[in-house]
Every structure is written in C-alpha cells, then in structure tokens.
Amino acid sequence: MARLSQSHRRQQGLLANCAQVMRIFRRHRRPRQGRITSAACIGASERCSASMRCQAISEPAMPSIRYARPSDAKALAALAEETFRDTFGSVNAVEDMNLHCRASYGEAVQLAEISNAAMITLLCEEGGNLTAFAQLRWSGAPGCVSAKSPGEIQRLYVAKRWHGKGVAHDLMAACIGEMERRESDVAWLGVWERNPRAMAFYRKFGFVEVGDHVFPLGTDPQRDIIMARSVAHRYPGA
C-alpha cells in the first residue's frame, strides 16, 4: 500500500508538471491563422471604434438644401463665379471668361435672379458656407424641347472641394422635385459639347440629347447640347 501511495503521488506530480507545461505552452503559443483570441478581438473592437469616431469627426456632414434669400446674393455671386471659373477656366480664353463673368455674376445680378418670380435658386449649405447651387427658370424652351410646361435647369454647380460626395446628386433630385411642384412635364438643360463628364451625370437622371443651341462665352459662340427628360418618370440610375 505504501508503494502504491508513493506511485500515486508520483503520478500526481507528473500530472501537475504536465499541466504546468501545458499552461506555459498555451500562454506563449501563437494563435492559429484565421482565428482571433478574445483579448485580440477586444483590442480590434476598440481600434475600430476609435477609427469610426475619428472618421465621423474628420468627414464633414452633407450640406443641407434650402431656398435662396436676398441676403444670400453676395455669397451666391462669389460661389457662382468661382465654380464657373473652376469648371471652364482652363479650357477657354481668359478674356472670354472675364467678359462672361462680369456680365453674369455680381451681387446685384444674383439678387435680381433670387427675386425673380419665374426662377428658383436652391442653395447647399454646410456650416454657414455655401457649397453648391442650382437655378431653375420657367421662361420658355427651344423648339427641340417638346413639352406643354417645360422647366429649365439653368445652372447646377458644386464647389470643387465637394466633388464626388453626392452633393450634385442630391441637388439634382431637389431640382426635379421643384419641377414636379411647379407641374412642369419636362425638364431641360444645356451642356457644353466638350463637357462629357456633365453629360454622363445628366444621363444617369434620364436626360437625353434632343438638340443644340449657341451659348455665347464672351466673344466665343460655343455649342451647347440640349438635354431633356420627363419630370414624372422615375429613373433607376438617379
């Protein structure tokens, strides 16, 4: 019995040593590929949460859209000229750009447009600053636009720093909504023939080419493509 007890004690000792070795092995072994230990998972969650918080802080909120007021005329004039020059300045003569901007933009010019009952000016605003705008008007349409009550999207421009953030999409949707409220059956616009990016954007909203007209940029008579779409129809890509 004494020998058996001693043997039993030796077995217990061996088992204890084995258990200690296994504990050490588990503590120091690397986790298998494709699996994450609980501690690592918690750490990853903390990093993800911190990253998401930083992303939320660094990414600005989407601008809100509202109607222009007379007090917006000065800021609107500045944004309108800035965006027009950013869009077309590098591919047109400086003097033609200057002539067009002097005639088309200025506090008094934009104030008259905001006050015009046959126009609507929509502004995108973020943090008190204007980021984009659109102007709609109801003053007839070229003969190539077949409609009973056409409405024109005269201008739609987004500040360069807001390109690619969905602002133009939201603004265009707001324009179509205004056309519906005014009971227009067709929306139309003119786009420079050398601006394929803009034409591709309009096509996503269902606009198709229906004709052309001349747009005088200073002393340069340029060709604009006329595009139109039904206001009531819903387009999947828009």
Rank of each mutant, 00 (worst) to 15 (best):
A73Q: 06
L76C: 11
L76M: 13
A77C: 14
A77T: 01
A78V: 07
L79T: 01
L79Y: 00
A80H: 00
A80S: 08
A80T: 00
E81T: 00
E82D: 15
F84S: 03
R85F: 00
R85L: 01
R85A: 01
D86F: 02
D86V: 03
T87L: 02
T87M: 12
G89I: 11
G89Q: 12
G89R: 05
V91N: 10
N92Y: 09
D96V: 07
N98F: 00
N98K: 04
L99H: 08
H100Y: 12
H100K: 01
H100C: 02
C101T: 03
R102E: 08
R102I: 05
S104L: 01
Y105R: 02
G106I: 08
A108I: 08
V109Y: 02
Q110I: 02
L111G: 03
L111F: 09
A112Q: 10
A112K: 09
I114M: 05
A117L: 10
A117Q: 14
A118D: 07
M119A: 10
T121Y: 00
L122V: 07
L122G: 10
C124R: 01
E126S: 10
E126Q: 11
E126L: 00
G127W: 00
G127R: 00
A132I: 00
F133S: 03
R137C: 09
W138I: 12
A141Q: 04
A141W: 05
C144R: 07
V145C: 09
S146F: 04
S149E: 07
I153S: 08
I153Q: 06
I153N: 03
I153G: 01
Q154F: 12
Q154C: 13
R155P: 15
R155H: 10
Y157C: 04
Y157H: 05
A159C: 11
K160I: 04
W162A: 03
H163Q: 08
K165T: 13
K165S: 03
G166R: 11
A168T: 11
A168N: 12
D170P: 03
D170Y: 06
L171V: 01
A174W: 05
C175I: 13
C175P: 12
C175E: 04
I176P: 09
E178P: 12
R181F: 10
E183V: 14
D185W: 03
W188K: 14
W188T: 13
G190K: 13
G190R: 13
V191I: 05
V191T: 05
W192E: 01
R194Q: 11
N195F: 11
N195Y: 04
R197Q: 13
A198V: 06
A198T: 04
M199D: 03
F201T: 03
R203K: 15
K204F: 03
F205N: 02
G206Y: 12
F207P: 08
V208Q: 15
V208L: 13
E209I: 09
E209T: 15
V210L: 09
G211Y: 09
G211I: 10
F215I: 14
F215L: 09
L217E: 11
L217V: 06
G218H: 03
T219E: 14
T219F: 12
D220M: 14
